[in-house]
Design a protein around this nucleic acid. Structure first.
Length: 428
RNA sequence: CGGGGAUUAGCGCAGCCUGGUAGCGCGCCGCGUUCGGGACGCGGAGGUCGUGGGUUCAAAUCCCGCAUCCCCGACCA
């Protein structure tokens, strides 16, 4: 992609009332546009990052047998009345509306914009699950959730409209469910590792509601986080402040003295549902012995947009964003310095060569000064910066610098592709 | 939902106290000089001053209501 063609412009200033670092940098870099509090538009670079995150999650969901679906945002109220989650005093984040009535513009049936999809998927599953032979089975989706949060805040970390990956598992017994539940735990671990977050992300014990002792959250330690967790760094475990008691610690084999309090952002959670939804909605199956039973369910969420905000916030330095290679919108920011035709040609060659080698490049071909291009390279946070200039061309060299490094190194022009591809293969 | 702050050009802000033709910086357009860490000169384009009412000869400015945004807290199925 040529920078001169790119839809967005970067900015030097951000709205002064925007305090969250992820929002400041993502807006300055033109990754997102804020539509209103807690509602963001994803622009080309931002969408590229979001899609990379989604693709990583998708691969790991497929790897454990998840089948992708896409459920509607508009939800009829009947399923939710059956589960008891329609009324506003039970779930207070609903956005609700109505259709037009059949005979014109009087009001028709009530609808809600889905804030989660347990009810919907359970109702659908009734038509497809009827025997132990159909179990276990797993479906997931990337879908937009709407939650009328009393207070959206912290940029992408708490939104009213956001994409969520939600996986639902259907099992024939608690044992069958538990087995998959553990597999999801492992899969989530892989996802956060690939996203570069594993060092700071902890499997965290949290409230399980009325159907099980615990649920599990994946909490990334960040000062901006809304959750408070107690972390045992050695055991790589944490406990949410909401559930911490002496009994819980004993159960988990944790000692108070080993725990450290920290702020964290919930980037994922996995939740045993038991028969909380299958019972009221009538999702049953016939077991081997011919007995009618309720399906045992679980739900498993990750918010890709929130994850993007967390990555932005966590790795940024004073010059701007720092994207891990796995989610960067482009791998290389190519800068040409000077307007001389030999420089332009050299830069164009490198652009073609890298692109041909499968390395994505954002080529800053604008007629701007070096300082401005460097500042943009830093702000946008692509993993590598390649510079072509008159001085370098004379020696048949180009300059290569990792975003995380202070010192550029000179590389022979004809070895750049090899060097870069080699570096990338190592890290991917 | 309680408390505090804010709303003036695409973005960042001044002007308001003390009413009198709306200004600065960034960005944008044109010309020229520059060219390895956000250059400079000259000339331009761009604004229902969040919104509804009121006071006044006259309102960005004074008064009343409302909306929206940010922060702190409560909430977070």
């Amino acid at each position: 992609m040529r920078r001169s063609q790119l839809f967005i412009k970067t900015r030097k200033d951000v709205p002064s009332d925007e305090v969250a670092l992820n929002a400041q940098l993502l807006i300055r870099g033109g990754f997102v546009h804020k539509e209103m509090a807690g509602v963001y538009d994803f622009l080309p670079l931002g969408l590229a990052v979001l899609n990379k995150i989604i693709e990583i999650i998708r691969q790991e969901m497929n790897a454990i047998g998840g089948q992708e679906v896409y459920l509607s945002g508009l939800q009829p109220k009947d399923n939710w009345e059956k589960s008891g989650r329609w009324h506003d005093d039970v779930v207070d984040v609903w956005f609700k509306t109505r259709t037009h009535g059949a005979k014109g513009f009087h009001l028709g049936p009530e609808l809600g914009l889905g804030n989660t999809h347990e009810e919907a998927i359970t109702a659908i599953a009734r038509g497809h699950i009827s025997s132990y032979k159909d179990l276990p089975t797993y479906v997931y989706q990337f879908q937009t959730k709407y939650r009328n949060e009393p207070r959206a805040k912290s940029g992408l970390l708490r939104c009213r409209e956001f994409i969520m990956k939600d996986l639902y598992s259907f099992s024939g017994s608690q044992a069958q469910h538990d087995k998959f539940y553990e597999e999801v735990k492992v899969a989530y671990g892989k996802i956060f590792k690939r996203l570069g977050l594993s060092d700071s992300t902890y499997l965290t014990y949290a409230s399980g509601g009325s159907f099980s002792k615990f649920s599990h959250e994946f909490q990334t330690l960040l000062p901006v986080g809304e959750d408070t967790v107690f972390v045992d760094k050695k055991k790589k475990m944490a406990v949410n402040k909401d559930v911490i008691t002496d009994d819980v610690l004993t159960d988990l084999g944790l000692k108070k003295a080993d725990l450290k309090e920290a702020k964290a952002v919930e980037v994922g959670n996995i939740f045993p549902l038991g028969t909380r939804f299958s019972k009221p909605l009538g999702l049953n199956f016939v077991d081997r012995a011919g007995q009618n039973k309720s399906v045992v369910m679980g739900s498993y969420g990750i918010g890709p947009g929130r994850v993007m905000g967390v990555i932005a916030e966590r790795f940024a330095d004073k010059s701007g964003l720092v994207w891990p290679e796995a989610v960067a919108p482009f791998m290389v920011y190519l800068v040409s310095i000077g307007d001389d035709s030999s420089i332009r040609k050299a830069a164009q060659d490198i652009y073609s060569q890298l692109t041909a080698a499968g390395v994505s490049v954002l080529y800053d071909d604008r007629d701007e000064r070096a300082g401005e291009k460097f500042a943009d390279a830093d702000l946008l946070g692509l993993p590598y910066r390649v510079v072509v200039s008159e001085k370098l061309i004379k020696n048949n060299q180009v300059e290569l610098k990792a975003r995380t490094s202070q010192t550029p190194k000179e590389v022979k022009h004809d070895q750049l592709v090899e060097t870069l591809v080699g570096t990338l293969v190592k890290t991917l």
